[in-house]
Write a protein that binds this DNA or RNA. Structure first.
Lengths: 224, 224
DNA sequence: TACAACTTTTAGATTAATCTAAATATATTT
DNA sequence: AAATATATTTAGATTAATCTAAAAGTTGTA
């Protein structure tokens, strides 16, 4: 095993991570504006950084055409995401944080540099495959487990799904789910579905209640 | 409990920490050169930063006279040190790192910002009073336990001491101690002491061996 | 006390990351 | 295809942290 012999700044790592996520959503190049929006920064700042990352061979960049990660860049992005998600597991499993409280802290911890540290942490946590929001944790090689999952909104009346993750992971949404006793592993039955607006009545732990399509569009479930 | 409503940069925190340590060694103001040396930086850089920290009321600074932490500055420094040492305990106790491997990682972790995190970590670790090198961990209020300790070099022939810490904690020194089976809690008996150069023969776990004064000058022991 | 030696500060540059405003390229719509 | 709208880049500033070189202050000693 040989170490990465270059040092990425926090800012560079954040750009690679953002581009990695954007590539998953839309195939091909990622646009300057898309990056700027996802990072809450200005397009001109993105151009600068993307040019710098292109020089470092972290991505391929063509003026006005957007960016695409190289293997090198993808590996580093996956590594940052690996660290983020492992730390989230640590915070929830070991320090008893709630799943809606860990994001900001993990944003900081993901930049700690030590391969040894993260591999030991991984072992300490029992080599988890998913983080507390159901997102897959890349392994040392940057590979993550894929699961068959669909959105709750795709289920039909009377179908049953097990909650395996969330699409949105804002504090408000997670807190809403908590209030309704929905977390990873929760069994959800679709009792009724309104054609007009896609809203649903679902059963969770013997209780029936109404949810909007927005909610159903942000919950991942697994069906048998 | 109210939060600190200002944000310190990593560089600022490192300066406060360094000045805190220097104040312990020498009473009164800490000189620009002393800070520069301890931080491996240039005096001119120190002047700049010290002026900035003075504006932020973290320390009192008089041109050509050096710096002295205010209560505010001392509190932040103690907090950084608290975090550093708690993370060291975590690394050694939970992730099975060796005491000579944790410093660089803790240097990074000490800047993670979250009061909640560090207090939960403290509880998770069982609210330890000392780090793996025997250094006291400040509590939430910035107060640390003081111990009656002396240098091994102060002991006379036939005196017995329990190792409670190290003055130097460089990797080389800690590795030397490991090789000799000396760690926190180890019982050390002075079998002989040379007046000429202060070197000693000591007994550790039924084995006698020779140590130089340099070694004895960097080991803290507690006598009964 | 005067000068030499040392310490400290100032002035002016540099690098990284960001921004605003202006210029340029691409895309969309008549 | 021309005009308009949108996206992207460039140019020039700004802030934080650092440096080098030069200037200024302090101290110790002959």
């Amino acid at each position: 095993m040989h170490k990465l012999n270059f040092v990425m700044t926090f800012a560079e790592e954040n750009y690679l991570k953002a581009i990695f996520h954007l590539e998953l959503e839309s195939q091909g190049e990622v646009s300057t504006n898309a990056i700027a929006e996802s990072m809450e920064t200005k397009p001109s700042s993105v151009t600068d950084m993307v040019q710098k990352l292109a020089e470092k061979k972290m991505l391929v960049y063509k003026r006005y055409k957007g960016a695409q990660l190289t293997e090198k860049g993808r590996k580093i992005a996956a590594d940052v995401i690996r660290k983020h998600r492992l730390w989230e597991v640590f915070l929830v499993e070991k320090l008893n944080f709630h799943w809606d409280e860990v994001h900001d802290i993990a944003e900081q911890l993901e930049h700690i540099k030590s391969e040894e540290l993260i591999n030991r942490l991984d072992d300490f946590l029992g080599n988890p495959d998913f983080d507390p929001h159901g997102d897959p944790i890349p392994n040392e090689q940057g590979v993550m487990k894929r699961t068959e999952k669909k959105l709750l909104s795709e289920l039909k009346k009377n179908q049953i799904g097990i909650c395996v993750g969330v699409k949105e992971s804002s504090g408000e949404f997670l807190q809403y789910l908590d209030k309704k006793n929905i977390s990873i592993g929760t069994r959800i039955t679709v009792m009724g579905k309104e054609f007009f607006d896609g809203s649903m009545v679902i059963e969770v732990q013997n209780e029936n209640f109404f949810i909007s399509k927005t909610i159903a569009d942000n919950l991942y479930v697994q069906t048998s």
